[in-house]
Amino acid sequence: MEKVLVVEDNPDNLRLITKILERGGYAVASAPNGTDGVAMAQKETFSFIVMDINLPDISGLEASKRIRKDGLCKDAPIIAITSYAMRGDMARILAAGCNGYFEKPIDPLNILEEIHKITGRKK
């Protein structure tokens, strides 16, 4: 089973995305904040990382930057989840090293497809 990392501080959202990903056949590891997320990403290999932008300590973008710097997930796809999505956000998100993003609220039925589009996997 492939392991994926979800960095999300809201427990409800975490539960939802975990459910969806598990449904998709992934083993989900989670981190409640950016720092932990970065640490985990650096130490373990994940198929991809779902990064909530709105995190309590450091922003998801910052976490993404750090992950991209070094560690085992340096090249792993990172998908950002944001509720802002304003002008320039896409660029910023991509600049931070993410591969794509979603806007909240997510549509559980489509999200996996979209993720696979981003990660470049067919499932």
């Binding site: 809201n10 959202n13 449904r23 304003m86 609220p105």
Partner: peptide, 26 residues
């Protein structure tokens, strides 16, 4: 806007998300 975005959408995430998966008999 950001706040609105975030605050309003976050619960909606749950409403839509969970009702969806429930409805899909997941």
């Amino acid at each position: 806007i950001a706040s609105m975005s975030h605050e309003l959408r976050t619960p909606l995430n749950s409403i839509i998300g969970f009702s969806s998966i429930l409805l899909k008999e997941w």
